[in-house]
Nucleic acid binder design. Structure first.
Length: 378
DNA sequence: AAATACAACAACCGCCAATGC
DNA sequence: TGCATTGGCGGTTGTTGTATT
């Protein structure tokens, strides 16, 4: 279909926008709306391509954009949603009101990714970098199936977010978001959703089922019943209820982030010292000679096949929260796993690790459950 | 004070799906 | 049904500001 780049025309300006250009674009859109982006530059008297105008508007000039530092809550949301959705920035952005996908993407690339990296966590997979690859038991099969469910749900979320955007573009339309959403949902899900959590959470529950099911096998006691969290894997029509323990685990995650973030200002905004804290924790771990922070058999439960699609798409790994927990909590509490003699000897109580995983996923579930009512995703 | 390195963010580019004709 | 157009998305690059030497 050989489409020529929209900016090929000679005479079109590129590069940073000037205040005058901003003013022109702003004034035009306020008066006429953007209409066709391709036609807009001419009408607005701008020597820009339509695409450039659209990006400038959506990423910078739009009045409902919040700028400035990300709060702890926003950071938490980004990390969790990235673990869930991967680099689907637009989908993540729909859950962070007033933040653009571009801003979130930049923040991830310049801040969060580096932090995870320094901690020895692969920011793509959210797994420890030296993680083993394959689980030989049957769990991997379930996990692979679940990855497909996760992929499907991600696609559905994207589509739904798209509907929301469309509805916003047509505010006067008689077709409300709810109607559209309902129509959409009815085509792919027998359960109505806007009022409550999306069925996508069943995937999370199922994930938990896999994780905690294995925990039960490995840990015998102390594990969480697979039926309790994800036992209804075969019931795609079930909806998530905010069960006991979900709320507390969310706060656990917040706590983890907060603990890792050094000092915060009054608004919960992370200060730069946080980088040092994260680094210190990593150094602490390195200093005490922990190169592989987790029992290998527990790292290995997620096979490579669980990754969805290509490298940019992935399904989450519970080891993520293990890492957080181990680094941020155990380091300060004298956890025997971090002592010279007790490091790997905790295998017998592997359920602890899965308990951490449970907390991680519960935190996501809680995030989802507590999401603002205007959130288009969940 | 100048040079260099690094960080942060705005903007661009190419691809793709949806849509209209 | 097929082609052209449009808008959106994610990856990447370029620019600017700040810290360090």
């Amino acid at each position: 279909m050989g489409r020529s780049p929209c900016c090929d025309k000679v005479g079109l300006k590129k590069g940073p926008w000037t205040p005058e250009e901003d003013q022109k674009l702003l004034a035009y859109i306020e008066e006429h709306g953007h209409g066709s982006w391709r036609a807009l530059p001419t009408k607005a008297g701008l020597q820009r391509c339509g695409k450039s105008c659209r990006l400038r508007w959506t990423n910078y000039l739009r009045p409902d954009i919040k700028r400035g530092k990300f709060s702890l809550q926003e950071e938490q949301t980004i990390i969790q949603l990235h673990a869930l959705l991967g680099n689907r920035w637009s989908a993540i952005a729909t859950h962070l009101p007033k933040r653009t996908d571009n801003e979130i993407k930049n923040y991830w690339n310049t801040h969060l990714k580096k932090r995870l990296d320094k901690m020895g966590i692969d920011p793509v997979t959210h797994k420890p970098k030296n993680d083993a690859l394959v689980s030989s038991d049957g769990q991997s099969k379930n996990a692979a199936n679940l990855s497909h469910m996760a992929q499907w749900e991600s696609a559905r979320l994207e589509a739904e977010a798209r509907l929301v955007r469309q509805s916003k573009l047509r505010p006067a339309s008689s077709t409300s978001y709810q109607t559209q959403s309902s129509e959409f949902a009815s085509t792919c899900s027998p359960v109505q959703k806007p009022a409550g959590p999306s069925r996508c959470l069943d995937v999370l529950k199922a994930w938990n089922g896999v994780v905690w099911g294995k925990a039960n096998e490995a840990g015998a006691s102390g594990g969480v019943s697979a039926a309790g969290i994800g036992g209804d894997l075969e019931s795609p029509t079930s909806t998530l209820s905010s069960g006991a323990g979900v709320g507390e685990s969310s706060s656990t995650f917040v706590e983890l982030v907060r603990n890792s973030s050094g000092t915060c200002d009054g608004g919960g905004t992370m200060k730069d010292e946080s980088e040092g804290e994260w680094r210190n924790l990593t150094e602490y771990r390195d200093g005490i000679g922990i190169s592989t922070p987790f029992p290998s058999e527990l790292q290995a439960w997620e096979p490579e096949s669980m990754r969805v699609g290509n490298s940019s798409e992935h399904v989450p790994c519970g080891n993520f929260v293990e890492k957080f927990t181990d680094l941020l909590l155990s380091a300060s509490s004298g956890d025997p796993r971090f002592s010279d003699d007790g490091g790997e000897s905790d295998n017998g109580s592997g359920s602890d690790y899965y308990e951490d995983n449970k907390n991680y996923w519960n935190s996501i579930l809680n995030l989802v459950n507590s999401s603002p009512s205007d959130s288009p995703i969940f």
